[in-house]
Design a protein around this nucleic acid. Structure first.
Length: 440
RNA sequence: CGGGGCGUGGCGCAGCCUGGUAGCGCGCGUGUUUUGGGUACACGAGGCCGCCGGUUCGAGUCCGGCCGCCCCGACCA
């Protein structure tokens, strides 16, 4: 997404910190601050610096591609909404202090949207009139605001956050179930591409009932809640092709596979059912997504009516599907880090590789680094600072680039570089071409 | 929202109890040094001590109010 931009560290705003700012408690928050990804501008509100912004965009790109793949339509709704719209569903009064309420110069009530069900329902009803136009799924990736009483954990529980919200419209319950399953498939593919193990766990479905509400939990040792699950989840593969979102029987097979093995957070944990699980796994988890079917909760009161095949007017069955995009940045770091810093999965890393020039000014080192830098065309960060080798090693480990290409005078003379894989710590001495080939 | 705590150069902190010329480490600048895991030395720049008011000859320090931020809990994507 940011392919054209190249970066030389000496002239980049990537302010790494040797010491941890006092406010940061958990690992991801500390590391995001130390690696120069974000800066807090107010309680629970963050500015995304260049490297952090690249990560956020990488995650958003993958989310978007998988939403598109199941036929959801990308759009963008505003952050500021009118209170009147929310009065039509009754939620303006129901929502409570988490909703940030504003007034414009004419004293009209506005709000900074915490979610968009009312808005999408309103937009949809203005132009969709017939069952022939269903089903449809729409989504957007937008900043939202919830005035949390107590923001914490950095970006994982901020007040302003980037969220993917999708909404489905179907003629009836049976159709809504298909949309729901498609979305679950898209989610599993999304998390797989992000490099994490995510498990759908049944969640409170509210007054609607049924089993159509799932939370997606990423496994991370420092997660916020305790989770119990069947080891069967560990070997599942959702690469496209294994299940078609266009085949009802595939979706059925997929949904059964996802929801049959045991998986629960502490809220829904059932000791009796757990006792029957053959291969038990326990761990900590972070919720990064939530999908649910809510029927006609909005279409009814907001009078979204559609002509059914028999000519009657019916309220479409809806569902909504969220992924916490900015929260995922923190969650991924919780899942992938060590004492030295972040260990980005390849798919979301701000840069594929860092080029470490261990002897700035040395003719051979400079030449090799410049050459590599040009060849990466935007995918590598070149540490061209006048710093000691140790500083560069430490910062590279901190920032978590999947690969480090270490260029020092020793190897330069022989035409070799050292390639380090951040995730495993494995290093090897290679020719420049071999190193490039290895990184791909 | 209940409970606790903190605001002092960019970052981490001391100083406040017991008022008297604002300090330390890191970072930053210059020079020398070092040259494959945060090198060493020297010199230097940088602070309305969160804000407003009060007490006092004198306030970073004492008193009052306000603002901001963090932690535990309840709550939450």
């Amino acid at each position: 997404m940011t392919d054209q931009i190249t970066m030389r560290l000496s002239r980049s705003l990537v302010p790494t910190l040797k010491e941890t700012p006092a406010e940061a408690q958990i690992a991801s928050h500390r590391l995001m601050l130390r690696a120069g990804l974000v800066r807090q501008t107010a309680s629970g509100i963050y500015a995304w610096l260049p490297a952090g912004w690249r990560v956020l965009q990488n995650i958003a790109r993958i989310v978007r591609e998988e939403q598109d793949a199941i036929g959801a339509q990308d759009m963008l709704m505003p952050t500021i909404q009118s209170a009147d719209l929310w009065r039509t569903s009754g939620r303006y009064d129901a929502y409570g202090p988490e909703m940030l309420r504003l007034k414009d110069r004419h004293e009209r009530d506005l709000l900074y949207g915490p979610t968009n069900e009312e808005m999408i329902t309103d937009i949809f009803r203005q132009s969709v009139k017939s069952y022939r136009e269903l089903p449809q799924m729409l989504y957007h990736i937008q900043w939202k605001f919830r005035d949390e009483v107590r923001p914490r954990f950095g970006v994982m529980r901020g007040r302003e956050f980037l969220m993917k919200d999708a909404y489905s419209f179907d003629l009836d319950y049976a159709g809504a179930v298909i949309s729901y399953r498609k979305m679950m498939l898209a989610y599993m593919r999304t998390f797989q591409r992000l490099g994490v193990k995510a498990i759908p766990m049944e969640a409170e479905s509210g007054p609607i009932g049924g089993n159509l509400s799932h939370e997606f939990i990423i496994l991370a040792p420092t997660g916020e809640s305790q989770v119990w699950y069947d080891a069967a989840f560990e070997s599942m593969d959702f690469s496209s092709g294994r299940f078609s979102h266009e085949s009802e029987s595939d979706l059925d097979r997929f949904f059964t596979q996802m929801t049959t093995p045991y998986a629960a957070t502490d809220e829904k944990h059932d000791e009796a059912a757990w006792a029957k699980v053959a291969e038990k796994r326990e761990g900590r988890g972070i919720e990064v997504g939530h999908i649910f079917y809510f029927g006609t909760k909005y279409s009814d009161p907001m009078e979204l009516r559609i002509a059914a095949p028999d000519g009657t007017q019916v309220s479409p069955h809806m569902g909504s599907y969220g992924i916490g995009v900015s929260r995922l940045v923190g969650a991924l770091i919780e899942a992938f880090h060590d004492d030295a810093g972040i260990k980005w999965p390849d798919s979301v890393a701000p840069f594929k590789a860092a080029i470490l020039n261990l002897k700035q000014g040395d003719a051979a080192c400079n030449r090799i680094c410049e050459d590599l830098y040009a060849k990466f065309a935007g995918h590598a960060l070149y540490d061209d600072r006048e710093e000691r080798a140790g500083v560069k090693f430490n910062d590279a480990d901190l920032m978590g680039h999947p690969w480090q290409i270490i260029v020092g005078p020793r190897g330069a003379a022989a035409g070799t570089v050292e390639l380090k894989r951040r995730a495993t710590g494995e290093r090897q001495e290679l020719s420049i071409d071999a190193a490039l080939a290895r990184i791909g």
